[in-house]
Design a binder for these strands. Structure first.
Lengths: 258, 258
DNA sequence: TTGCTCCTCACGTCACGTGAGGTGGC
DNA sequence: TTGCTCCTCACGTCACGTGAGGTGGC
């Protein structure tokens, strides 16, 4: 017969863990010897190993009792569910490995060269430093969240700068950020509405569905609205022109005014 | 600027988690707006994503602060350590998947056929039912702990039954379990010592180093000593014949008397 | 006799979850 | 006005860890 220490060592757990399983009723309390010590037989070892195997697979102890009591088909179904979760968890850890590697390779989140050159191009177009910093913040967020998609998204962004209408819009937004007057606001709103009307947007990122645009654009919009004084007014003007909500219909456009 | 809810949603965490990171000083408290609401900028998003990436890799929050503050080489070293742990964890989960599959495939720990046939052979040799049940318990333990090695170990065990000396030993131990007299004990001890002297043991399992023999034999010894009245006496007799400790020197032998 | 194992409370820990009770924004 | 978000305590949870104080086995 085994003491609790021998049992625990054999199953690779602590003595405290075994006592815990007794406490919550997962493992049956064995007989005691003359000194009040618990004495275990072979079946206890088997039970404990089954408990550890399932718990090691991530099954909560509270659900584990049911599984052990389940009949064969129910048990098999439980095993399938556990196996799916294990596969998901392994996938998650593989993805985490890549992310961690990116953290190290990216020299602690300095932006990749394609973003740097993009920002340089914006500067060369005469946009204000404030506008460029807003852009920079946005791209840091994208790089942190979707490092794998950054390259293709940037390719689209670079191509976009070849469109004179968009360049004009950027310049307007930049001036507005620096406190441009009402006439600029109206011009920007007209341009925005026109671009929206042309359905210019779908190809704008050059990446189609690559990035989860909704959340990102919502985020950047939120950052933009609070940081620029004219943003609320611009939104109003846009509404007058028939675009109830910029974020929902054309999320990529107003990101640019951060 | 972002509210705590937007920040949390973007990083894929709960609002409570963000507050928790503030509480323990992992994430800097941002400015508050007129209503006392926390307002976050882009850098907070980046910090939060880094925290989540590392925490998702299993780094304890208490160590995470150091990592974020570390300089580049120290950070790189930390990343390597994390990556090793991630690989280990993935390996562990893969192994767990196999174990779980065994649990289901083994129809809830019914013994595999090669063990059943082995036990049948023991019965055919005239061993008592008590002896066979002891063997059964032992093999259940082996099957639960080293399912992958069971097949090769059993092959060795089957071969072993072709040795008349070992069969003789088994019969003696079986009789002793059922209350055999002193003369049987002496005979068994002589036979054990002789088998040990012949260095018969190293090939006994037929599997070399396949199973972690020490722990298993220690366990089975413990189960055996308590369950059979003659075990202590047999150990004494064995000591008289120059075998100070059966478990240490020839662990495979006395397993058989369970 | 010393050191190790065992026993039972019972509080601590880690990373949040979950109301409790109240205020602010659309 | 209603519903949703935000705020601060503060207790709860999960799976044990960790002494506290005492007894038993070699």
């Amino acid at each position: 017969m085994l003491t609790i220490g021998q049992l625990a060592a054999y199953a690779g757990v602590t003595v405290r863990a075994v006592r815990h399983y007794h406490q919550i009723g997962l493992l049956a309390e064995p007989e005691r010897d003359a000194s009040g010590y618990r004495r275990y037989g072979a079946p206890a070892v088997v039970s404990l190993i089954r408990i550890r195997t399932l718990a090691g697979a991530g099954v909560p102890l509270s659900q584990l009792g049911e599984m052990l009591d389940a009949d064969t088909p129910a048990f098999a179904e439980g095993v399938r569910r556990i196996d799916r979760r294990l596969r998901d968890e392994i996938e998650r850890l593989e993805a985490t490995r890549k992310q961690i590697a990116q953290l190290a390779a990216g020299d602690r989140l300095v932006l990749p060269p394609e973003v740097i050159s993009y920002l340089d191009r914006l500067r060369a177009l005469g946009l204000s430093e404030r506008m460029v910093q807003g852009e920079r913040d946005g791209w840091i967020l994208v790089a942190a969240r979707w490092p794998d998609h950054l390259r293709e998204i940037m390719a689209g962004k670079h191509a976009q700068l070849d469109d004179p209408q968009l360049v004009r819009l950027y310049r307007l937004l930049s001036e507005l950020l620096d406190g441009g007057d009402e006439s600029r606001l109206v011009e920007a709103a007209d341009l925005l509405a026109e671009l929206a009307r042309q359905a210019y947007v779908p190809d704008e990122t050059g990446s189609g569905q690559a990035a989860p645009d909704d959340m990102l654009s919502g985020l950047l919009d939120a950052l933009a609205v609070e940081s620029s004084p004219g943003a609320h007014r611009l939104l109003e003007l846009l509404r007058e022109r028939g675009w109830a909500s910029w974020t929902r219909t054309r999320p990529q456009r107003l990101d640019r005014q951060a």
